[in-house]
Amino acid sequence: MSDQNGKLKKMMIILSKATLDNVYAAFVLANGARMEGIDAEMFFTFFGLEAVHKERLEHLHVATVGNPAMHMPTMIGGLPGMEAFATRMMKKEMEQLDMPEVLEFLDILKASGVKLWACKLAMDMFHFKQDDLYEDLDGVLTVGDFYQRSSGEGVQMLFI
């Protein structure tokens, strides 16, 4: 290590999923970095783009199928209304923990200085335009651009 003694300076967080638990994990990690004086940037790719899609970000769900931690048989998890029910329960718990909704959380991240980037390839794949996305997004990047922004010492990258 150099003169920084391995100090963490910036977190680069890639969000590729849109289930509520993954979105919140990514948001808490980005916000937590800023709270510790560490810079943070987020890259929304593939389904992670839903977390910054103006209309869809209000309707994110937890996954009840294929999620062993739900402790629910797969067939039950697949019944109509199960995901909505589980999501309601989770949101209720989170409200008690003073966790903001997705849109408010994006506002908090933005005000805290987190850079928010959408992935160009995923935008093209889903036929999203920048107008479809959260207003205060910092822009649309290629993966190469994102790597460029990750250069330097004390930078860590996280894929969710």
Binding site: N31, R34, M35, E36, G37, D98, P100, E104, I108, A111, S112, G113
Partner: peptide, 26 residues
């Protein structure tokens, strides 16, 4: 919490980070 600071009516989150740039709440 940062969220409560933002809702305090005393300071918004952006200004809070400007006033205390490094780990503001701590």
């Amino acid at each position: 919490s940062i969220r409560k600071i933002g809702k305090s009516g005393v300071v918004d989150i952006k200004e809070f980070y400007q006033l205390f740039p490094n780990a503001p709440l701590k």
